[in-house]
Amino acid sequence: MIADFEKFIDQVEDPEHQQRVRDVLEWVQTTFPQLEQRYAWNQPMFTDHGTFIIGFSVAKTHMAFAPEGTVMEAFATDIQADHYNPGKKFGRIKWSQPVDYDLLKRIIEFNIADKADCTTFWRK
């Protein structure tokens, strides 16, 4: 199902972190089967009609989700409530924190709806 991302997942050293990344990517694909998988800029991402919806990356202390700055602003309160460390265009979920799948679902749904008429990869 997420075959395009296996090489990325295999690079995650900790087996528990590797499984978490796989779980999240599989959840996105299962929950939003219409999204296309794309691997670019060294990260797995999901697109809709050629426009970016969300990407993921990993670091030693966290997994990050990147839905673009507009979405980070729209969900700032929820991201802060989950104690995810927000950046301007992405949020960091510490490996020790649970993944808030409801929040991710709302973020992805927002991006799909907000970018329904978008003809570029990134927002202008």
Rank of each mutant, 00 (worst) to 15 (best):
E6W: 02
E6I: 12
A66P: 02
F90E: 06
I2C: 05
P44V: 03
R38K: 13
D10H: 12
H83F: 09
P33I: 00
S96P: 04
P67L: 10
K115V: 05
D10F: 10
A116R: 14
L35C: 04
V99A: 02
A64D: 05
G87E: 06
G50W: 04
I93M: 08
V21L: 13
E26A: 08
N111E: 13
I93E: 00
Y84V: 09
L35M: 03
Q97W: 03
F90I: 10
K89L: 12
F90L: 15
A116P: 11
E109L: 11
D14N: 15
E36R: 07
T51P: 00
I112R: 05
Q37A: 10
G87V: 06
I54N: 01
F52N: 10
F52V: 07
V12D: 01
G87Y: 04
D117Y: 06
V28K: 00
F65Q: 01
K105G: 08
M1H: 13
E26H: 07
K89N: 14
F121I: 12
Y84M: 04
M72L: 12
F8N: 01
Q43S: 13
P44Y: 05
P33R: 01
F5D: 00
W27L: 04
Q11D: 14
A3D: 14
E36N: 11
P98W: 00
H62T: 08
A40M: 13
E13S: 15
P33M: 02
R106V: 03
A3S: 14
R22G: 03
P98Y: 03
A3T: 15
T30S: 15
G50F: 05
Q19V: 05
N42V: 08
R92P: 10
Q18W: 06
A66Q: 12
L104Y: 01
R20V: 06
W95Q: 04
A76W: 08
A40Q: 11
Q97K: 13
S96K: 11
R20D: 03
F110C: 05
A113L: 10
T119Q: 14
I79T: 00
T119E: 12
Q43P: 01
F8M: 02
K60S: 09
K115D: 04
N85Y: 11
P86F: 09
E109H: 04
D4S: 12
F121S: 06
T119V: 13
G91V: 10
I79Q: 00
A66N: 13
K60H: 06
W27C: 01
E6Y: 06
R20N: 05
T61P: 06
K94A: 14
I108D: 01
K115M: 12
R38Q: 12
Y84I: 10
P15H: 02
I9S: 01
L25F: 03
P86Y: 08
G69N: 09
C118W: 12
H62S: 11
I107K: 02
W95P: 02
R22M: 07
H62Q: 11
A59E: 11
G87N: 10
T31G: 08
T30W: 05
I112Q: 03
R106Q: 13
Q11A: 12
W27A: 03
Q97S: 13
K105S: 11
K94F: 11
E26V: 08
K105V: 03
K124H: 14
D23P: 01
R20I: 10
Q43E: 15
R106I: 04
V71F: 01
T51V: 10
A74S: 07
P98V: 09
S96C: 07
A40G: 03
R106H: 13
R92S: 10
F121K: 09
